[in-house]
Amino acid sequence: MGQSGGGCGSGRRSAARAALLGLTVGCGGAGEAEPKDSAPAGDAGATADGGAGADSGWAAEGDPATVALHGACPLDRRWGGFVVDVGPRYSAVTGAVADGVVPVTVLRPGPHEGDCQMLLRENPSCDPPCAPDQACDFDGSCLPYPRNQDLGPVSIRGLSGPVSMDPVPPGTTYFDSAVPHPAVEGDALVQLDTAGGAYPAVRLHGVGPEPLVSDTLAWVVGEGDLPLRWAPPTGLGRSRVEARLMVDQHGLSPYTLVCSFEDDGEAAVPAGLLRSLLGAGVSGFPSGTLRRRTDDQAALPGGGCVDLSVSTTQLATVEVDGHTPCDSPDDCPPGQICNIPLETCQ
């Protein structure tokens, strides 16, 4: 467990959530958004050639072996962030930063073990329903809807091609859907700069992940630990490997099991947490991802946080073994009864 509790949030729930987030991200480290010497805050005008940083080539300056990486933002302070992801078929660059947190995106921590943590997505309910410009909070109140902010042009150096993004109206989102695939080479230093707009300029870093090769992408979730193997990095090894396992409960509050492992080639998802995940119900579609990633964050004025994730992702197939869902005795093998509330044979 990394940094936890304390300064990440306020109040009891925030502390609990912050404790959770210490698992994968830690909450300290980065300071306020740092003024960028070549792009004064408030200069949101994009240039025809791509805006910020388009003047001096696209290699990031610095040493990927030592550049500071401060982890991802805690969910209850995460006003937004940027993602560079190399998927199996294409690469994607995207980002958005708002002026607050949409409550439903703050996942409630469940049990944890080792490098793994259960997260529960709760569904807040507001009566009467909130207006279009409002978001529903967990206490049933309606909040002003967090609005994405114009950060000015955003450039990313160190990728396989130049990336310079202006905010796309009307939602003020940033993305580049034409970045060459793969978007980043292993151990390449990645540097993201916002020119400054609604917030002062921000600089974030990442290190390109080596390709993620695993021979355990067919996950069978049964009684024991779920073993995972992958080829460890041959270079700098700045990354961690995240395994994420979700069972969509089709409307009920779903748990997600998230693990953040050292990138050393092997790990196991603990049986106890897998049992917890299945105990929460398996009436929905199970899915899994294995992701090699680096994360960096910076604070925003007003208590917010923005982060950058640079990752490569593989999809896993998930099969639930040793669990028989049921809603009638006919669904259960001889000698077992259907536990109706848990929808499982036992």
Binding site: P124, P132, C136, Y145, V168, P170, G171, T173
Partner: peptide, 11 residues
């Protein structure tokens, strides 16, 4: 690719 939230707070 421009996007916008039409309505939030849906259950």
């Amino acid at each position: 690719g421009g996007s916008r939230v039409v309505l939030g707070g849906l259950e």
